[in-house]
Design a binder for these strands. Structure first.
Lengths: 149, 149
DNA sequence: TTCACTGCAAACCTTTTGCAATTCT
DNA sequence: AGAATTGCAAAAGGTTTGCAGTGAA
């Protein structure tokens, strides 16, 4: 069993969520996917495996995984992908949502997640120039991954 | 007439778009708003002014303004706001979409737009560590503006 | 056994499409 | 006049809600 699946199941258990068949199916699917998926894309992929899960359940499972910080939501298209970066990471503790930056390949859709390191000076600069008190942020990069170059 | 309205009208004319009553109403409304607005929010605000514009037209007007880089789209909620930063700005020329960073107040919704300055070192770092070739990015900050502090 | 979770039906909200009528230039 | 734009009707998507039945702990 992959690290992600194991971690996801443990976190759900710890937080008193039940380990159900539909939840396991969605977790397994997200674990295999290199791209972010929409609710309907998840449904279609499960369907084609002969695993029928209602679309409403998929929405609720995504909510559940998001609450448990087990998925990222890509803002530019509202799809979700597994979050592999550990829950011990600073951003998980202090931010309202995962601020791990996303690198999105415009050709194949592959997404890589990276830590927030390096953004701190930008935040300081922006706070200084704007008189906003910044609490959190969202940063998505779009480009071409090494396999597509 | 405000700078924004004047600029918007000029740019539409330059690009062979017509200056119609509904378009002027939306431009004026966006000019006055400190928050980003959804299509239906625009419709409701115009309605309450006694100006009836069909929701379909509002969608099409937003598209038109977006193509002309006269509005930003806030990714986190898909609303639009006027783009005040000049068309001579680097980002307008080279990026696929406006990369002006947005500062969004979590209390009152006010949005401030700022230049991309300061992000370049982060992009270099990310490219170096990831072997992605970065083309563009989107960065939204969430916090509290000075009036709400 | 109990309560969380799922599935189904239906509602709801947002966005898009096609076409005829309108109105800018 | 001619072409772009609007308004209307309708469809298409995406997401949410309520409730009864199911299944994990």
């Amino acid at each position: 069993m992959s690290d992600y699946i194991e971690k996801a199941i443990n976190i759900l258990k710890e937080n008193d969520f039940r380990i159900t068949t539909p939840r396991k199916l969605v977790i397994k699917l997200l674990d295999k996917s290199k791209e972010a998926l929409s609710a309907y894309e998840i449904k279609d992929k499960l369907d084609s495996q002969g695993k029928d899960v209602d679309i409403v359940s998929i929405y609720r499972i995504i909510d559940c995984l998001e609450k448990n910080k087990l998925v990222h939501r890509v803002l530019s298209n509202s799809k979700v992908m597994k979050c592999q970066i550990g829950h011990e990471d600073e951003c998980h503790k202090h931010q309202e949502y995962h601020c791990h930056h996303l690198l999105i390949c415009q050709k194949c859709g592959t997404i890589e997640e990276i830590h927030c390191a390096g953004i701190a000076p930008v935040i300081k600069k922006v706070e200084h120039e704007s008189s906003f008190k910044i609490k959190t942020h969202n940063l998505e990069f779009y480009g071409v991954c090494k396999s597509c170059l």
